[in-house]
Design a protein around this nucleic acid. Structure first.
Lengths: 370, 370
DNA sequence: TTGTATGCGTTATCAA
DNA sequence: TTGATAACGCATACAA
């Protein structure tokens, strides 16, 4: 039996709330400074006796010590957090992106502080403010949909906090960005339809205010030109600007209906994105046009609804999760660079989309929607 | 013209990084204490001369002063952040919930720290650890899918941090919870089919490990009993346990296929959730069974894919965004209670689901899948 | 009505 | 190889 004095019972006095470093110091018999060095595995830890380390680590574990992130920040200026602002989380586009970001940050033991601008400029600004107050070490903006003028972001670089945008880019080299290569994507989609033998193709272009719209369409035009495919202006429509990222569905429905009313024959339809494609498919179905038998439809993005619809949607896949991961890694690299006083420059990354062939497209031999 | 001495230009010296309260104090000519009182509108602010307040506020604005959340926390023990752990953000169920949580927290100027457990226990624990380090003032767990035993959460109440779960509940009264009333939901679904005249109905029940499965099925059984509807055991299947929240799609597909192979006639199918329903619809379509003409299908949840599928899916809607909002309000109330040393007790909230009739169901007169 | 002094839990700079 | 000590930026008790 051990003598009473042997008992390491912590006097459960008043301050039973939180275990501080001082508690660990007392328990282990070393000074707070040493404890700090050991527990952070700081450079100086090389000079600490292994036995000491062990004792300290044991005490820490025994007491359930948890470093206080706030106190730590006050000294080290490191909050171990990154701000992540979504323009509109409602867009299924965002989910895999968020997953990618989260996963990358997790690897570095950083936490994401989540913000959703609801497509409102003042909300965006307010969140920026809040994130700054929380001293996030970096910022990621997922700007899939609406424009909010992001000059605000330029402000950040002044504060030396690395920022990256996903699905959007700013002029200049202040903010990093990760985007799909829309031109390749546009080509991929049209190429697929063309190779299936489609010649009469209807197009629903993206809203003017979306940055992806123009290059994606350029990809289409260039490819059409290359293979000598004629694009009938009567079969080209454009989604109206809107604040709702999922409005493409209604837009696709309406524009497809209009195509049908024109009684212009087409055997395939290329939509700006997946939801637009699904909207179009619904219009076609309502008019009794079967997909893909009478009309092939291709989307863009590869969000969840594309995979689980009936028929499943052929689409051009954006590697959304990867895009999130990359953006997070880019800013984290910036954070590390700042820490090590290394030089670091902003990055503009284009990722390559990929054709995903499913059930909504097939060869043109069979029929046509008119 | 003002004299040179009038210029309030801040010497852009070394410490141009961050504006602290001391800077504001110097600039306004008052002490840091007074500045603190004014800027926080603390109780003592009542006694401060309006002119003083004005001067201080102007200086603060002019200098672009931003309180340092970390430093503030160290004193006040308030981090102005709430941890939000998702078991698996990949589930479309989560998006509206997240939106609801975010919106409620925003109203109180709290930020959500986002965590995604990827359905892994150790990841869940690690995040809990990280959130504790960041001293979140409350915790919300969105446990839509897999079980991770949440005894860990009980730990939190010891630390006096209010917690709530969404889509899951714990025994005891340690943690608040917000759930749909699954029994009502189950009844609603069956009632709809029954009122459309369906008698031969196939059922795909939820996985055993999901907490919703049992009560939802109970609702079905009770209603069937009430109206004297017979449930054919050969037309009842159950989704296998799985770690992937979207696996219901494949499960629905497979089980619907099996029903079809049995050559038992049914004119309607009730699926555990929307994705399961969509999977089933794909199987039916593949077998040439038209929905809703030959077979009605109803889902549960009302996630995005349900609304944009073709045909659009009739479903029992969970008020997901509201559930998120409610959970956030519940824990925020706990936070305030703690602050005011008020009493506060944990809550178990059941929200009411709602039938959303769309295009995947119709009266039974027309045909049957066999 | 405002200012002074102190400490929150850590880390960094010394000195020992 | 380790320990004192002094900040970090803010909020409060207390003094003035």
């Amino acid at each position: 039996m051990s003598v009473p004095g042997d008992m390491q019972v912590k006097r459960g006095s008043g301050r039973n709330q939180t275990i501080t470093m001082r508690d660990v110091a007392e328990d282990s018999g070393f000074s707070p400074a040493t404890v700090s060095i050991v527990l952070n595995n700081a450079p100086l830890a090389r000079y600490i006796a292994p036995a000491t380390k062990k004792r300290i680590e044991e005490s820490a574990k025994k007491l359930g010590y948890r470093p206080n992130a706030m106190a730590r920040f006050l000294r080290s200026k490191r909050s171990h957090s990154v701000g992540v602002i979504f323009f509109d989380i409602t867009d299924p586009f965002c989910t895999p992106v968020l997953r990618g970001i989260e996963n990358a940050l997790y690897q570095s033991s950083y936490v994401p502080i989540f913000a959703d601008a609801h497509n409102q400029r003042n909300r965006f600004e307010r969140y920026l403010e809040m994130l700054l107050e929380h001293h996030v070490e970096a910022l990621i903006v997922v700007a899939n949909w609406l424009v909010v003028d992001i000059h605000l972001l330029a402000d950040l670089s002044k504060r030396n906090i690395p920022a990256a945008t996903i699905g959007w880019e700013l002029p200049g080299d202040i903010v990093s960005s990760v985007m799909v290569d829309n031109e390749i994507g546009g080509r991929l989609a049209l190429e697929h339809l063309q190779q299936l033998g489609h010649r009469k193709i209807a197009f629903i272009r993206g809203p003017k205010m979306i940055i992806d719209s123009a290059p994606r369409w350029r990809g289409v035009q260039k490819y059409a030109h290359t293979v000598g495919l004629e694009i009938d202006p009567a079969l080209v429509a454009q989604l109206p600007d809107s604040f709702d990222p999922n409005s493409g569905f209604d837009g696709g429905y309406r524009l497809a209906e209009e195509f049908l009313q024109k009684r212009k024959k087409f055997t395939a339809l290329m939509a700006f994105d997946d939801l637009t494609a699904l909207g179009a498919i619904r219009a076609l179905a309502k008019a009794g046009v079967k997909v893909p038998e009478q009309c092939s439809v291709i989307g863009f993005d590869d969000v969840l609804p594309a995979a689980v619809s009936v028929p499943s949607l052929t689409t051009v896949r954006q590697p959304l999760e990867t895009m999130g991961t990359n953006a997070a890694n880019i800013v984290m690299d910036g954070v590390k660079a700042g820490l090590e006083k290394r030089d670091w420059s902003t990055l503009r990354q284009k990722v390559t989309p990929e054709l995903v062939i499913r059930d909504s497209t097939r060869d043109a031999a069979h029929g046509a929607a008119d």
